[in-house]
Write a protein that binds this DNA or RNA. Structure first.
Length: 515
RNA sequence: GAUCCCGUAGCUCAGUUGGCAGAGCAUCUGACUUUUAAUCAGAGGGUCCCUGGUUCGAGCCCAGGCGGGAUCACCA
C-alpha cells in the first residue's frame, strides 16, 4: 500500500518534522485577511505609499493577506516570493531582520517551499524594479505542502514548464486550478452564468423547484438511463434523464412558471460534447407557446452574454458570433431545402430514405421518417449554422411530448436554437391533450419493444395528471454545460466541468457496491 | 465500439542504427539585504505506462493490455 516517496516528497516530510520539533505549527487555524493581492495592486498609491529603502512613506499601507507560495528568489538575507490568493498574485519581500530571531534562516529559508500556504502581514511598497510588493513584517505558515507543485515560470507573457497534460489537469483539477488562472476564470464565469440565469428567471416570477433525481419511471428525453437499486424498498430506480415530466405535473398543480437547474444523467458515451452527468435548466410557463419562448430565449441568452462580456458577442477560436436579438427563425424543412436543395415536406418514408441515400447517408430499415429527417439535418444543415438561429416545427414522431402544430400536419410546435453548429436549447409548446399523449407514449412503447433502447416508458401517473387538465404551456431545456462552452469559448465539455468523468487511474480492488 | 496520435525525473521535453538514461526548471549544499524565467559554484533524483516476445543487448523493434487526446460511430 505504501507508495514510494519521491526525493522532493521526502524532503518536504522531513521539513514538516523539523517544523514540529522547532515548535512551529505547520497547519494553522486562521489568518485575518485584510487585503487580497488584487486589492493591493489596485489601491496602491505611489504618492502616498511609495518609499525606497529606509525612507518612510507618507502613509503606510498596512496589509494582511494569505495565499500559496508560487515562486521564491532567495538572496542571502533577503528574499522575494510570489504569493497567490484567489484574486491573483503579488510579490512579497522578506528580510531577515524584520522577522523574529532565527525565523528567516531556520524556518523561512530552509523549511518553507513553493506550494506552502502562508499568511503575511506588512506594508505595501514599490520595489526598485517597479513592482508593487508587500514588505513582510510577520509571516506564518498556514499549511505545509507535502507534494511539489508543478512550477511554471513566466516572463513577458511567455510561460515555461506549464502543465499541459490534459489527463493530469482533469484528474488533479485542484492543481490545474492552482496553476492556471484562466481555468479559475472559466469556472467563475460558469458560476456567473448559472446565477445570472437564476436571477433572470426569478425576476420574472418563476419558481425554482426540486424534483426527484431517483425515479421509478424515467422520461422526458430519448436516452438510456443509469439504473440503481433501493435496498429497503427492494425496488429498481433510475437516475433522471430529464426533469420534464415532474415539472409539468407542477404546472398541472397550479404553478404558472417553474424551473429547475439540476444534474441529469444519461448512460451514453463520452465525447467533447457529452459527459454522463450534466447540468440542465428546464423551464415551463403556463399559457405561453413556443413563439413566446423563442423571444424569451433570445432575451435570456443575449443578456447572459452581456453580463459576461459587456456586449452580446462571444468569441470561439477565430470566430466572433453575435447573439444580439432577433435571431432568425427557420422551419426545419426550409433549412434543409436551403442547404441540400431537397424539399422533404410531405415525402413518405421510402422517398426520404432514397433522398438521404442520395446525399450519401447510411440509412437502415429501423430508421423511421423522423429519424431520417433528423439525420439529414444533423449532417448537412446543423454544422453550418454558426449565427444563432431557431429551427422550428419538427416531425411529430421525434417529439412525443410536444404539441401538434396548429396548422402544419404531421409537425409539432417545437424549436431548437442552433449556435456555432450546435444545439443550444430545445423547446416546445407542451402537449396537454391526455388522449394524444397516451397514444404518443404507446408509439414509444412500440418502438421500445422493437429494440429502441432510448424509447420512452409509458408514465401512467403523468397521464393521470394531464387528465386533470394542464393549461397550455411552453417548455424549455437548456444544457448549461454547452451554454457555458459557448459563452466562454471552450470547445470541450471537460473544460467547463470541474471534475469530468474519467476512467479510474489504476485498477482498484475496492468494491464499488455500497454496504 | 472503430481509427489515428501520445505515455521517459516533481513539471516541460530530448533521446542517434538497438549499445552505460539526458537537458532546462524544480529539489539538495554553499554564496548573496530591492530580485523577478534572479545570479554564481557544486550535488542528488528514473518501475523509460504494464505484460510478454525478438536479440549477446530494448526507452527504441514485435504482440497484447492500461490510460489519455483527436476524429468517427452511438448520442442531443
Amino acid at each position: 500500500m505504501a507508495r514510494e516517496l519521491t526525493e522532493q516528497e521526502e524532503v518536504r516530510r522531513e521539513a514538516l518534522q523539523k517544523l514540529q520539533e522547532l515548535g512551529v505549527r505547520p497547519y494553522g487555524y486562521s489568518w485575518d485577511v485584510t487585503h487580497h493581492a488584487a486589492d493591493i495592486l489596485e489601491d496602491f498609491d505611489d504618492t502616498q505609499h511609495a518609499a525606497d529603502d529606509g525612507a518612510e512613506p507618507a502613509e503606510r499601507m498596512e496589509v494582511a493577506l494569505a495565499g500559496r507560495i508560487m515562486s521564491r528568489r532567495i538572496m542571502g538575507k533577503a528574499s522575494f516570493l510570489h504569493l497567490q490568493d484567489e484574486s491573483g498574485q503579488i510579490q512579497v519581500y522578506v528580510r531577515r531582520d524584520d522577522l523574529p530571531e532565527d525565523y528567516y534562516n531556520t524556518v523561512f529559508k530552509k523549511l518553507l517551499d513553493i506550494g506552502d500556504i502562508i499568511g503575511v502581514r506588512g506594508f505595501a511598497f514599490r520595489t526598485r524594479m517597479g513592482e508593487i510588493s508587500v514588505h513582510a513584517e510577520e509571516l506564518e505558515l498556514l499549511a505545509k505542502a507535502l507534494r511539489p507543485l508543478p512550477v511554471e515560470k513566466e516572463t513577458e507573457g511567455r510561460v515555461f514548464n506549464e502543465v499541459t497534460d490534459k489527463e493530469f489537469r482533469y484528474r488533479q483539477r485542484y492543481v490545474d486550478l492552482i496553476v492556471h488562472s484562466d481555468v479559475r476564470h472559466i469556472f467563475r464565469q460558469r458560476a456567473r452564468i448559472i446565477s445570472g440565469m437564476r436571477q433572470f428567471l426569478d425576476e420574472r416570477g418563476y419558481v425554482e423547484v426540486e424534483t426527484p433525481v431517483l425515479q421509478p419511471i424515467y422520461g422526458g428525453a430519448a436516452a438510456r438511463p443509469f439504473k440503481t437499486q433501493h435496498n429497503a424498498l427492494g425496488m429498481p430506480l433510475f437516475l433522471r434523464i430529464a426533469d420534464e415530466l415532474y415539472l409539468k405535473r407542477l404546472i398541472v398543480g397550479g404553478f404558472d412558471g417553474v424551473y429547475e437547474i439540476s444534474k441529469d444523467f444519461r448512460n451514453e458515451g463520452l465525447s467533447r460534447y457529452h459527459n454522463p452527468e450534466f447540468t440542465m435548466m428546464e423551464l415551463y410557463v403556463a399559457y405561453r407557446d413556443y413563439e413566446w419562448m423563442m423571444s424569451f430565449v433570445e432575451e435570456m441568452v443575449e443578456s447572459l452574454a452581456v453580463l459576461l462580456h459587456g456586449k452580446p458577442e462571444v468569441s470561439i477560436g477565430e470566430t466572433t458570433i453575435s447573439l444580439a436579438r432577433p435571431w432568425r427563425r427557420v422551419p426545419l424543412f426550409d433549412a434543409i431545402a436551403e442547404k441540400t436543395g431537397h424539399d422533404l415536406r410531405g415525402r413518405d418514408r421510402d422517398e426520404l430514405a432514397s433522398v438521404a441515400k442520395g446525399l450519401g447517408l447510411e440509412i437502415d430499415d429501423t430508421m423511421g421518417s423522423g429519424k431520417i429527417i433528423d439525420e439529414v439535418f444533423g449532417e448537412f444543415v446543423e454544422p453550418h449554422l454558426i449565427e444563432p438561429v431557431f429551427i422550428t416545427d419538427y416531425p411529430v414522431e421525434l417529439s412525443p411530448l410536444a404539441k401538434r402544430h396548429r396548422t402544419k400536419e404531421g409537425l409539432v410546435e417545437r424549436f431548437e436554437a442552433i449556435v456555432n453548429g450546435k444545439e443550444l436549447c430545445n423547446a416546445f409548446s407542451e402537449l396537454n391533450d391526455p388522449v394524444d399523449q397516451r397514444s404518443r407514449f404507446e408509439d414509444q412503447v412500440a418502438l421500445g419493444s422493437r429494440g429502441d433502447s432510448e424509447a420512452m416508458q409509458l408514465d401512467e401517473d403523468y397521464l393521470r395528471a394531464l387528465e386533470y387538465g394542464m393549461p397550455p404551456a411552453a417548455g424549455l431545456g437548456v444544457g448549461m454545460d454547452r451554454l457555458t462552452m459557448l459563452l466562454t469559448g471552450q470547445n470541450s465539455i471537460r473544460d467547463v466541468i470541474l471534475f469530468p468523468l474519467l476512467k479510474p487511474e489504476a485498477p482498484t480492488d475496492q468494491t464499488p457496491d455500497g454496504p
